[in-house]
Nucleic acid binder design. Structure first.
Lengths: 237, 237
DNA sequence: GAATTATGGTAACATAAATCACCTAAACAA
DNA sequence: TTGTTTAGGTGATTTATGTTACCATAATTC
C-alpha cells in the first residue's frame, strides 16, 4: 500500500473528523463544522477534467483535498489561456464568487487526479457573518492571493523568459510540490501559460536550464540541482 | 468657489457625520464609527508625494477622500515600476496588510493633490472580528481587486500595445474619472507603467489614437470621441 | 496491435516592441 | 531673466520572443 492510499484512509467524509481541514476551517466550532458538512459534497476528478467553468454559476467554493489543480482564465478566439495559479491540498478556490458576481470569472481543471470538497456558498457566507476568526483567515488568504498576483504582474512586465521560468520552477518546488525533486505533472504548455510565453519558448528555456546543469529531467522527474543559480536567474532575469 | 472646495466644506473630520464614507463603513453602528474616528487621521498629500512606501511597516489602511492616487510595485535596480491600479475617492487601499505580513508590499503615491483618512489597522481588525456585514464587504472588495488583477494578467499576455492602452483609457474613463471627458492627470510614463509598455510606446500608440480620431487631447483634456472603436481595439488588441 | 492523437522537440524566419539618439516645448528654480 | 529640468515626441536600429514547419516519441483509442 502506497502513501497516497494511506492518506485516503486517514481522511474522512465528515468535516468534523476530517484531518485535512484548511486553516480557516480549524477556527470553526463543532456545531459549525457539522452544519458545514451538510452543505458539502466530496468529488474526485480525473486528470484534465474541468472542475469549474468560467462564466458558469458559482454555487460553491472548492477545497482541495488531494491532487493538483490549475486555475486559469480562458482565452477568447484563438488566444492562449493564462494560468493564474496551481493549487495543492489544503487550499481553497472560488472565494471571489461569495459576494457580488454570481459566476466564476475563471476556470479550474485537474492537472492530476484530484479530490475536492465543494462547499455550498451560503454556508460560507453564514460563517463569515457569524465567525470573525473565520473571516479574518479568509481575508488573509485573499490578501495573499492578491500579493501573488502583483508579483506576477511585475514579473511579466520586467523579467524575460529565463527569469520568469526560473521563478515558476522555484515556486512549484517551494509552494506546490514542496520538495526540490518532484514528478513534473504539468505539461510544457501548462508551464508556458503559467509564465506568459509560447510553448516553444518554455521548451527552449527549460532545455537551456538542463544543458547548464541547473535542472535534471529524468522522464518527467524534475530535480533542481543548482537552486542558487535558479534563484539568481529568477532575480535578474 | 469651485466644485472641489465646495466638496471639502461638505465633508467632516469626524467619521460619524462624514458624507464620503466607503461602502463598508456604512455598515457600522454609531458607536463603531465613533471608535473608528479615534483611530484615524486625515492627511492631505501634494501631487507626487509618497503616501505609503513598499517595505515600510503598515500601521494603517488608507481611505481616499479626495484626489487620485496610484498603487504600484517598485522595480529593483533599473527596472520599471508597475502600476497596479489608480484609486479615486471612496476606495480603500492596504487591506492586504491586515493579517500576516506587517509591511506594505507596494507603494502608493498621489497623482493629484489628495486627501486621505489613515485608519489604524487594529480598529479595522476589531471591526472584522465583530461585524459580519463589514467583513463581507471587505471580502467582496478584495475579490474584485483579485478579479481585476486576473484581467490584467490576461491582457498582458494576450493583447498587444493598442489593445492594452485602449483598455486602460476605457478603464480610466469608466472607473476612475467616471466621465468620457477628463483632465488627464497621469503622465505618459504613468500610462506606460500601468499597461506594461515603454513610455515611447505609450506615446506612439496614444498619438495613433489621436490621428485616427478616436481620442482628442486638448492640452491634457482628454475626450473619447469614438468609444466603440476604442472598445473594439481593446477587445481584439 | 494498429492507428491516431497529444506531447516534446529543433531550427529558420518574422515581427512586435524596446532601446537609442536626438529634438522641442513647457515648467521650475536660481 | 536665464539656466535647468521634466515631459512629450519622432525616426532608425536592435533584440527578444512568437510563429511556422517539420519530426520523433509517448500515450490513447479503436
Amino acid at each position: 500500500m502506497d502513501y497516497t492510499s494511506k492518506m485516503e484512509n486517514e481522511t474522512a467524509a465528515n468535516c468534523l473528523i476530517c484531518q485535512n481541514k484548511s486553516e480557516c476551517f480549524k477556527k470553526l466550532s463543532n456545531s459549525e463544522l457539522e452544519n458545514a458538512d451538510k452543505g458539502k459534497v466530496e468529488i474526485t476528478f480525473k486528470k484534465k477534467e474541468i472542475i469549474a467553468k468560467q462564466g458558469a454559476f458559482a454555487s460553491h467554493v472548492m477545497y482541495i483535498k488531494k491532487g493538483l489543480v490549475k486555475q486559469y482564465i480562458e482565452g477568447a478566439n484563438g488566444h492562449k489561456n493564462v494560468i493564474i495559479n496551481f493549487f495543492s491540498p489544503g487550499q481553497i478556490i472560488g472565494l471571489s464568487s461569495l459576494f457580488g458576481k454570481s459566476t466564476f470569472d475563471f476556470s479550474v481543471a485537474a492537472v492530476e487526479d484530484s479530490t475536492l470538497c465543494l462547499i455550498d456558498i451560503n454556508i460560507v457566507r453564514d460563517l463569515i457573518n457569524n465567525n470573525g476568526e473565520f473571516s479574518s483567515r479568509l481575508i488573509q488568504k485573499l490578501s495573499e492571493t492578491n500579493s501573488y498576483s502583483y508579483q506576477q504582474l511585475y514579473d511579466l512586465t520586467n523579467k524575460q523568459l529565463n527569469g520568469r521560468l526560473a521563478g515558476a520552477i522555484l515556486y512549484l518546488a517551494k509552494e506546490v510540490f514542496k520538495t526540490r525533486k518532484f514528478k513534473m505533472t504539468l505539461s510544457r504548455s501548462d508551464l508556458a501559460e503559467f509564465t506568459g510565453m509560447s510553448t516553444m519558448s518554455a521548451i527552449r528555456v527549460l532545455n537551456d536550464f538542463k544543458e547548464e546543469g541547473i535542472l535534471v529531467d529524468k522522464n518527467g522527474m524534475f530535480e533542481i540541482v543548482n537552486i542558487n543559480a535558479l534563484e539568481q536567474i529568477s532575480r535578474t532575469g
